[in-house]
Design a protein around this nucleic acid. Structure first.
Lengths: 129, 129
DNA sequence: CTTCTTGCAAATAATTTGCACTCCA
DNA sequence: TGGAGTGCAAATTATTTGCAAGAAG
């Protein structure tokens, strides 16, 4: 894997991002620094990183791929209205996984958990209940 | 909401399905019974059902929307190789959710949890480790 | 009848791919 | 220099939408 400026910049954005980030979002950010950057380059690198296990890929509820760094496997609580996000620090699943592996014979290698709801600010805005 | 044959058949497939099922999959099944059925009709009805809370929509790891009936909120353990699926009967999150609502002020209304790994059969097939 | 549904075809949106050119090792 | 990396445009795939015709209440 060669080391190019764009490749490094893409990976940097993933790890810099506050939470899971999409190819388009990275593209928008890096376009300023690299005016000729192609969206396909972003996709190709992200897929590469994910295949090599450098980053994680997940699908957000709107059906878009989002990538996140591996600085600690994280789960999120996201607001369905304003998309604000809070990272959860505990992962209640590690324990459960072992038990499941025994019960089912599967070998589990990853899981995705995301919780959806309304953040305090958005709750206030709609008293239509 | 009017009651049409196709609408009923689509909903039936969702509830009949073993696990989360896609629009294309439903379309393929129902095409035999309704040769003129349009894929857009399947999508429109599924979206309608989901909006009305009749069924749940989630995104599978390949980025495709999959719909599932609400006969018991369920989580799955799916094989990344053969896509076989096992439904988990316990949901370790209800307890956690309450605590999180207090801590964060969010009101949580749904969550998605899926575990990925290799099923026993597929593990055997690849001793390339 | 009158409105909700549907089929069909065309429009979007996200992602992937082919190919010629560029740049790092 | 030689192959990995990139830009660009075109191809795919999943999903959505407009509109005229069909069926349900």
């Amino acid at each position: 894997m060669k080391n190019t400026q764009r490749r490094a910049a893409i990976l940097e954005q993933v790890t810099l991002a506050h939470g899971p980030i999409s190819a388009e979002e990275i593209f928008a950010i890096l376009r300023e620094r690299f005016p000729t950057l192609a969206l396909s380059t972003v996709y190709r690198n992200l897929e590469r990183f994910a295949a090599d296990g450098l980053i994680d890929r997940e699908t957000s509820p709107d059906g878009v791929f989002r990538y996140s760094g591996r600085e600690g496997h994280g789960h999120y609580l996201v607001c369905t209205q304003c998309h604000s996000r809070i990272r959860l620090h505990e992962c209640p699943l590690s324990a459960m996984e072992e038990k499941l592996e025994e019960e089912t014979g599967f070998s589990i290698d990853r899981h995705q958990l995301t919780l959806y709801g309304k953040c305090p600010a958005c709750k206030k805005q709609e008293p239509h209940n």
